[in-house]
Amino acid sequence: MVRDVTLGQFYPGNSFIHRLDPRSKILLLIGYLVIIFCTFNYLSLSLVTIFTLFYILISGVSPKIYLKSLKVIIVIVLITSVLNLFYGTGEPIWQWGIISITMNGINRAVFVTIRIVCLILASSCLTFTTSPTDLTDAIESLLKPIAKIHFPVHEVAMMMTLALRFVPTLLEETDKIMQAQKARGADMDSGNIVTRVKAFIPILIPLFVSAFRRAYDVATAMECRCYHGGAGRTRMKVLHMTKRDAAAFAVVALMISGVIVCNMMFPAVM
């Protein structure tokens, strides 16, 4: 049961997006997220939407998986869009008591829905097409400038790598401890929420103890293999940008300028 959880949810593949440098993917994602919130009329909004559909199609990951990632946030989307619907200003087009809907409210609701959906799809696209290790490598490389102000960039990246490495191991262990406690008669599936949370304590304590023991072993193993922090360390895989990345940057730049032009040429509805 707990084994179904896949953190990061990486889907290996060989598409154009898979082969991009993870650093470019992160930078492009940031640019894209900013521009989503800078769409002020329907033309620029549809431009962003079309672009979103475009990269989903070329990412080589089934659209069904993207839909699954949207399922999780559907409640948030509904609540925010309904709230926005009633918060519009201007001439009401429909009124019932103190509740009124304006044109502005409808626009707000549509914009907010599409923006959140695009945001989730874009972030999913990054995690679907990039392996967790590539992601941490990219973060380490991008954060390198702030190492100058004594931010422990290498240490943070190493902690992320180790955490990701031990997610499946600890999940498996949780499963084992749960079975062991059930075999001794622990009841975890009945009672109200408080009793259930309490029933989880006999699982958490052994899990914590074992996690600390593992941490100690891992530290020994790392020391045995001459680990002494980031100084003087090399990497087997060196990240480098190619023409492919330049092309991706160009496409996104084109999209961004398209949005800016649309914003300037047509009146804003937001």
Binding site: S131, P132, T133, T161, L162, L164, R165, T169, R214, D217, V218, T220, A221, M222, C224, R225, C226, Y227, H228, G232, R233, T234, R235, M236, K237, V238
Partner: peptide, 29 residues
């Protein structure tokens, strides 16, 4: 090499784990 095989592998991909030692020694890529 220690007793518990789970507690001495550092990376989430086999070849990256094997590379961990030489990376620490500063061997060229």
């Amino acid at each position: 090499v220690q007793q518990n095989p789970d507690n001495q592998l550092v990376a989430s991909i086999v070849e990256e784990d094997v590379a961990f030692g030489p990376e620490n020694l500063g061997v060229p890529p």
